[in-house]
């Protein structure tokens, strides 16, 4: 597009207007490293080329035809007759990308303002880019407030009725969405295999457990041992089959579990999760009951790491006088 070429045109146009002190400053700054590329318009690092899909159609001025326009003029007088129009309307702001985006979104909304909308609560869930991500993308120090205003526009666009959402709005919004959206990743539905087994995997602390649940009489084998020989404490035994006990299914299913890693309690609670997940394959309607019993959510807590200068993760060394 014309934007990429603009600096070159301008350079050419302004070559004669360069002020001497600017040149001196760049020379003194850059030294002898790259003396062939003097720059004085921009004070920031060069911006990588961006793909701007949804900019408003803004036409730059046609290239200057010196033969036609400059009849009878030469040198500085010729230049005085020229009027330069940049490709971006916000070119003369320090960094134009955000303003361009904002203006284009405003124009988009203006065009589509009459389309029917749905309430905000019913609009599809979208996770927009954070301001930091936007800053990195545009390489521009955008202010919080301004980005916030742009998000208002985006949310308003998102509220257009999904059935009537124009393609250009969809494409425009894509630029501001995070790469992964909620509901993108869908787990494969678990199945009961041909032998009637449902598999579930659970983790807790550093233990991980796999449980196969099958319809039966309430027999439990863990790593090939009976539950009493594997878990000495009654509390751990109850934890391991808690999903079945809380839903009163202990005498309806058999459990065959494999556990590894961690300690006894972690293994028992990893089994809780594994058995609950396998049970939900057999009876998906039990999910609310299992959630109430605390068998659905993985407990993310782990041992906090030790830090340098501390005795343990948070404990500081004993205070010593001198």
């Amino acid at each position: 597009m014309a934007r990429g070429e603009l600096p070159r045109n301008l350079h050419r146009a302004f070559r004669g207007l360069r002020r001497p002190q600017c040149e001196r400053a760049t020379q003194s700054l850059r030294g002898s490293l790259c003396p062939a590329a003097p720059r004085c318009l921009s004070t920031t690092a060069p911006r990588p080329a961006e793909i701007v899909e949804s900019q408003e159609n803004f036409t730059a001025a046609p290239p200057i035809d010196f033969e036609q326009q400059g009849k009878g003029f030469t040198g500085k007088r010729l230049l005085k007759t020229l009027r330069i129009v940049p490709a971006s309307p916000s070119y003369f702001s320090a960094k134009p990308t955000f303003t361009d985006d904002y203006i284009s979104l405003l124009a988009l909304l203006r065009r589509n303002a009459t389309l029917p909308t749905i309430p905000k609560a019913e609009a599809p869930k979208v996770i927009w880019k954070t301001i930091d991500q936007y800053r990195v993308m545009t390489n521009e120090p955008v202010r919080n407030m301004r980005y916030h205003n742009m998000l208002h526009l985006l949310r308003r666009l998102n509220c257009i009725h999904p059935g009537l959402m124009p393609q250009e709005v969809r494409d425009a919004m894509l630029r501001y969405k995070k790469p992964s959206q909620p509901g993108d990743i869908k787990a494969n539905p678990a199945v009961i295999d041909e032998l009637g087994r449902a598999k579930g995997v659970g983790r807790r602390k550093t233990s991980s457990a796999t449980a196969w649940v099958i319809e039966g009489e309430g027999e439990v084998l863990i790593n090939g041992k009976s539950i009493t020989s594997f878990f000495g404490r009654l509390h751990d035994r109850e934890s391991a089959v808690w999903a079945l006990k809380a839903t009163e299914r202990l005498d309806k299913y058999n459990v065959w579990g494999l556990v590894s890693g961690g300690g006894v309690t972690g293994q028992a609670e990893a089994l809780t999760l594994a058995v609950a997940k396998a049970l939900m394959v057999h009876e998906p309607a039990l999910k609310p009951a299992l959630r109430r019993a605390g068998c659905v959510t993985r407990d993310p807590r782990k041992v906090e790491r030790k830090k340098p200068g501390h005795v343990k993760s948070r404990k500081m060394p004993t205070w010593v006088k001198r």
């Binding site: 027999e219 439990v220 009976s226 020989s229 089959v241």
Partner: peptide, 16 residues
């Protein structure tokens, strides 16, 4: 009752 017996039987490692 049936329920209590089944529960204890399972927790006792298949009737140990």
């Amino acid at each position: 009752d049936e329920k209590l017996v089944a529960e204890k039987w399972s927790l006792a490692g298949m009737g140990n």
